[in-house]
């Protein structure tokens, strides 16, 4: 493996971009392919399939045998709202192996004491997300049900094609939210991707139970997601 390729591979992984390390097992020659890089022919089809499935493996193409090692960014959860549900969700998400961040501009909610050991940012989501943009490997959970706080990140999550987008609120609250997101230029199909009411329908009542429902919903979307077309 070329040292330059190893650096490139690590750089792409650190930047949360999907990447494949492709090795010709016949002659040992290798290359790094970023998602969206053009690869022609049967090998291109194998590369596209590997990006979609996230599964590494051997592929035969043009009479040669290749190994494709697929590196998809690890899934992470961004929560808008440092509320009671988020306190439970943050702990559970860590146990389940997710990287999680909680964002809330309301300093009364976003306190170190309530979120000890959690990546917590007491600032407006639109400012925070500039430095760490949402992507297709991120789940966005909006639980303030305050449009001033939730709407911008929800809109950005739709544009970024987050693998899960959930928003807390009654059907009435959500109907008004749909109107606002439509006014922002989102299509009905895009807005239909939002899980609202949020979480799996397990009759969750307490904040901790709602956190279980949300986490279960996120895992279901992650593991059973339809194979993506070429992600943006």
């Amino acid at each position: 493996m070329d040292p330059y390729l190893l650096r490139k591979l690590n750089r792409e992984r650190a930047a949360r971009r999907a990447v494949i390390h492709l090795t010709d097992l016949g002659d040992g020659r290798d290359r790094v392919i970023c998602e969206g890089d053009p690869v022609a022919g049967p090998l291109g089809e194998a590369v596209a399939a590997a990006f979609r499935s996230g599964k590494s493996g051997i592929a035969e193409a043009d009479g040669r045998t290749f190994f494709l090692n697929v590196h998809l960014p690890p899934a992470r959860i961004v929560v808008i709202g440092a509320v009671h549900i988020s306190q439970a969700l943050a702990q559970m998400a860590k146990i389940a192996g997710f990287d999680i961040a909680v964002i809330d501009p309301r300093t009364a909610f976003a306190t170190e004491e309530r979120f000890a050991g959690i990546d917590l940012v007491a600032d407006w989501p639109e400012d925070v997300l500039k430095g760490r943009p949402l992507d297709a490997y991120t789940a966005l959970v909006a639980v303030t049900h305050d449009p001033k706080i939730d709407d911008v990140p929800l809109s950005q999550a739709l544009s970024a094609d987050c693998f899960y987008i959930g928003a807390l609120g009654s059907r009435k609250t959500h109907a008004r939210r749909v109107e606002r997101l439509t006014a922002l230029g989102h299509t009905e199909a895009e807005i239909g991707r939002i899980s609202a009411p949020i979480g799996l329908d397990i009759g969750a009542a307490s904040p901790a139970e709602i956190a279980v429902a949300i986490l279960g919903d996120i895992i279901q979307h992650l593991r059973r997601r339809a194979l993506r077309g070429t992600a943006a």
């Binding site: 190893l6 690590n10 992470r76």
Partner: peptide
């Protein structure tokens, strides 16, 4: 993003550090 145990133990990151 916080550095997790995975980052510290990531073989490809270690390979690059060793190479350096």
């Amino acid at each position: 993003m916080n550095e997790t145990a995975d980052d510290v133990l990531d073989p490809l990151a270690i390979a690059e550090r060793w190479m350096d």
